[in-house]
Design a protein around this nucleic acid. Structure first.
Length: 818
RNA sequence: GCGAGCGUGGCGGAAUUGGUAGACGCGCUAGACUUAGGAUCUAGUAUCGAAAGGUGUGGGAGUUCGACUCUCCCCGCUCGCACCA
């Protein structure tokens, strides 16, 4: 150990030793209790950024703490390696996506290793490796065979810039989530996972997650799934023997229907419209709507279709309007319009001069529909509703449906916002969908023994002319796995969210070559005890991973419902009030920080500067503060390096020793408690206080030296969770064998925390007037007596009546005076 | 608009869940050691006031002996959703 703290020397040294000793290797089926710590694996974009550093430092602190607590910890790392940036890079730099990806991965692994994270590197997963996606293809085939996958022509979001289809979730405000370009609609034949079959379960199983997941994430998922109760109601079409069905959540307002609206792309609409002029108008309307971007305040527009339908509750004939705000994808694509009680219908009715009728009434609201300034959507009592007049509207919802149900005109139903998951991507850099098209046998899955369907390597990525795979004869041309005739391969590849939907299972047995994973290993390691990642994955990734878990359970691979027991969503790293980004020029490169201060400082800072869930404002001064703290610890240990021995038995027989012993045990308790709750910032603050205390202690006797040395040793052990390299170096000079990371987490001695004296706050009418020292557990009278001896207290009581005395043992005495 | 969350010194943030507000760090001030220090150490640092003392957790009301903490109203900010019938 040298006098000056030099992270650039000691950090690589210990990283090498940990690696040589395989310190962080997790043992399958170990006897000790397991702990699966997982952080969301990165996309290999090229470099690790501060967001990663924060994410992985939080996970690392948890993993190291649990390890010292005696758990058999699984803490793996990998790369979500398929995806579009690799193809974009291939186009601009004329390289191959694989080359680009693997070079990035090599570099990022070096960066992660420089940060000293306690990963079991032998479990490294790279999703573009055929040994990984082979199993993904197997999952797909099993899902296909079970009818959990289907293909359909569908209108999809298409980004002309990226030349690919996007999932609904990947479209943000009409813009591509990656390139921010305008998204268009196109019709394509696409593969879908039937995630909607699991909608109810995805909601219901949230019960299992209520304790361990942020409420925010659960609410977002609930909103995303968007389950709502309602009914389908049949409206006869006037003049023909057919009907249109509407979906409504407000059957109680049925008597208020004055018109109906239909989606412009409703499949029945064209055949229903008789008038040629109106048909032409519809085409124009559809064309016009296509060009309107998805702005929220898009004007409501429409026109009369020439069709009338009949309201089943009162046999009224109402006009059917084609309206741009009606969605074909939700409900039935036809909406009954109740302008008095629905804001959208209200606006539409006003624009086109349509009638309004109030059917839900509450005292104080206008009597005439013409006097409404907005739709009344709250509860009330039914009026103008025939035999249901006077009924409470909540009750009427059921009664009206029941009444219509008997006439076979209605049925109760639930509708969801959640759509099936489109997994087709017309891209090269993804896992091929293992399907073969045979003239004789139709759409057939590849044989399991033929997997993986490998991505061909000799492909030129130009970025033009559709999917690169479809132009690759050697790939497309194949033989039918069923009949052996010439056939063609599917050229779509998987959405990359598929890879991240099950990687946490593969980590349990990453090299297993007989199946998707080794069931025994999964049995032992799952669930993930603590998952850490960004809030941006609240819906997509986390919902898909939950869905996959349920699918694999139903395929017989798993026995549990939910993959992640606990979830921690860490805040962003921001600088100058904005998220770090190249365009804003406020990026701090972790490599630079490591070079200047070392990994330990970087790690300590990101844990200390803010609680994990909150955004973290980057501060150069703050980083320096962390660096200074490590230097202080270093100097403290360097100064006392000869004190540390192995035998710490000492009689606590003086006030100074008692105080020191108290501080040691108090700190252990505080830090342990904080770590259990992931309050890293306060845990570090306690270690700082502890260091300050030790720094000023100056042992004066043999006994003090011995206990002081013990205190220092605990400091090293506890700090190793946050700053492992410096801890290891300091530990090594204690002349003890082994590594600090193999130390057990210290246990505090409750008896050391019992004090003879305590300080009690004396308040008068709730205001602090003095503090007094008194024996532990003193009773009310004793404390009051002592308090009355205080001049400060006397002064405030003088001339007043003591009305009441509140006493909280060892805490406070409140004297209430008139 | 709907949903969720947040609001504490100059700044990042503490407060064992109703019991001494401002831990810890940054910044700042003064001092020490120094040729020097942007190193280190010591002391101070919510605010008004010379002091005694007063005032303070976005604002207002309430519950309570006692409120950053609980309730209601208002203001401001952040995030998510966005024509889902």
């Amino acid at each position: 150990m040298i006098e000056k703290y030099n992270p650039s020397v000691i950090e690589p040294k210990w990283q090498k030793i940990w690696e040589e000793k395989s310190s962080f290797k997790s043992k399958d089926n170990d006897k000790s209790e397991k702990f699966y710590q997982l952080e969301m694996f990165p996309y290999p974009s090229g470099r690790i950024h501060m967001g990663h550093v924060r994410n992985y430092t939080i996970g690392d602190a948890i993993a190291r703490y649990k390890r010292m607590k005696g758990y058999n910890v699984l803490h793996p790392m990998g790369f979500d390696a398929f995806g579009m940036p690799a193809e974009n890079a291939a186009i601009t730099h004329n390289t191959h996506p694989a080359k680009w990806t693997y070079e990035n991965i090599d570099y990022m692994i070096k960066e992660l290793k420089r940060l000293g994270f306690a990963y079991d590197w032998e479990r490294l997963l790279i999703t573009c490796d055929p040994d990984y996606y082979k199993w993904e293809q197997k999952i797909f085939i099993e899902m296909f065979k079970r009818g959990m996958v289907y293909k359909k022509k569908s209108r999809v979001n298409y980004c002309p810039n990226c030349k690919t289809v996007l999932a609904n979730e990947q479209v943000d405000d009409g813009k591509c989530w990656r390139c921010s370009g305008q998204v268009e609609e196109r019709e394509m034949d696409e593969w879908f996972f039937k995630i909607t079959d699991y909608a109810d379960e995805l909601i219901d199983d949230m019960r299992e997650l209520e304790k361990g997941w942020p409420r925010k994430v659960l609410t977002q998922q609930i909103n995303w799934i968007g389950k709502s109760k309602g009914a389908f109601i049949k409206f006869k079409i006037k003049g023909i023997d057919d009907y249109l069905e509407v979906f409504t959540t407000r059957p109680d307002t049925l008597f208020g229907v004055t018109f109906a609206s239909i989606a412009p792309d409703h499949p029945k609409l064209k055949e229903l419209i008789k008038d040629e002029d109106i048909k032409r108008r519809l085409d124009e309307f559809i064309e016009k709507q296509k060009n309107i971007t998805n702005e929220y305040d898009k004007d409501k527009e429409g026109f009369f279709s020439g069709i009338y339908i009949i309201n089943p509750v009162n046999n009224e004939t109402v006009p059917l309007y084609v309206a741009n705000f009606v969605l074909m994808e939700y409900g039935t694509g036809v909406v009954m319009a109740v302008p008095a009680h629905d804001q959208r219908d209200f606006e539409f009715a006003n624009k086109y001069g349509l009638k309004k009728r109030i059917v839900i009434y509450k005292d104080g609201m206008p009597k005439s529909a013409d006097d409404l300034t907005e739709a009344y959507t709250d509860e009330g009592v039914l009026i103008n509703s025939g035999k249901f007049n006077g009924e409470d509207n909540e009750k009427a919802k059921q009664d009206i449906v029941e009444w219509l149900k008997q006439k076979n005109l209605a049925r109760e139903t639930y509708q969801y916002k959640l759509r099936d998951w489109n997994i087709s991507r017309q891209r090269y850099w993804g896992a091929p969908i293992p399907i073969v098209y045979c003239e004789h046998c139709g759409v057939v899955p590849e044989k399991i023994e033929n997997l993986p369907v490998k991505l061909p390597e000799d492909v030129q990525i130009t970025g033009e002319g559709g999917s690169p795979l479809s132009n690759q004869k050697s790939f497309v041309e194949t033989i039918c796995p069923v009949c052996g005739a010439k056939a063609k391969r599917e050229t779509d590849t998987f959405d990359t969210f598929v890879e991240s939907s099950w990687y946490f299972l593969r980590y349990c047995s990453p090299k297993y070559d007989k199946d998707i994973f080794d069931k025994e290993a999964v049995e032992y390691w799952m669930n993930v005890d603590q998952y850490v990642g960004g809030i941006e994955h609240a819906v997509m990734h986390l919902l898909y991973a939950r869905y996959f878990t349920k699918v694999l359970r139903d395929l017989g691979y798993l026995k549990f419902n939910e993959p992640f027991k606990r979830l921690l969503t860490q805040g962003m790293v921001i600088k100058d009030g904005a998220k770090m980004s190249k365009s804003k020029g406020n990026v701090v490169d972790p490599d630079d920080i490591i070079k200047q201060y070392g990994a330990d400082t970087a790690r300590l800072f990101v844990l200390f500067a803010a609680p994990p869930e909150k955004d973290l404002e980057w501060s150069e001064e703050g980083v320096e503060g962390s660096y200074r703290f490590l230097n202080r610890v270093w100097r403290l240990l360097y100064k006392n390096k000869n004190l540390i021995s192995k035998d710490y038995d000492v009689a606590i027989n003086s006030d100074r020793l008692k105080k020191l012993n108290y501080t040691i045990n108090y700190t252990i308790k505080k830090v342990t408690n904080d770590l259990e709750h992931y309050h890293f910032n306060t845990a570090i603050a306690s270690l700082m206080e502890y260091t300050n205390f030790l720094q000023s202690f100056n042992p004066k006797s043999k006994n003090e030296e011995v206990l002081f040395a013990k205190a220092l040793r605990y400091l090293i052990v506890m700090i190793s969770v946050f700053a492992p390299h410096i801890a290891e170096e300091m530990y090594s000079m204690t002349k003890s064998q082994g590594l600090v990371i193999d130390e057990k987490w210290p246990v505090y001695d409750e008896s050391a925390l019992i004090m003879k004296e305590t300080t009690i706050a004396v308040t008068i009418n709730g205001k602090l007037r003095d503090t007094i020292s008194t024996g532990m557990d003193s009773d009310k009278d004793t404390v009051f007596e002592k308090a009355m001896m205080s001049n400060k207290v006397k002064k405030h009581i003088q001339g007043k009546d003591v009305k009441k005395i509140i006493f909280v043992k060892n805490r406070l005495l409140n004297i209430v005076v008139s």
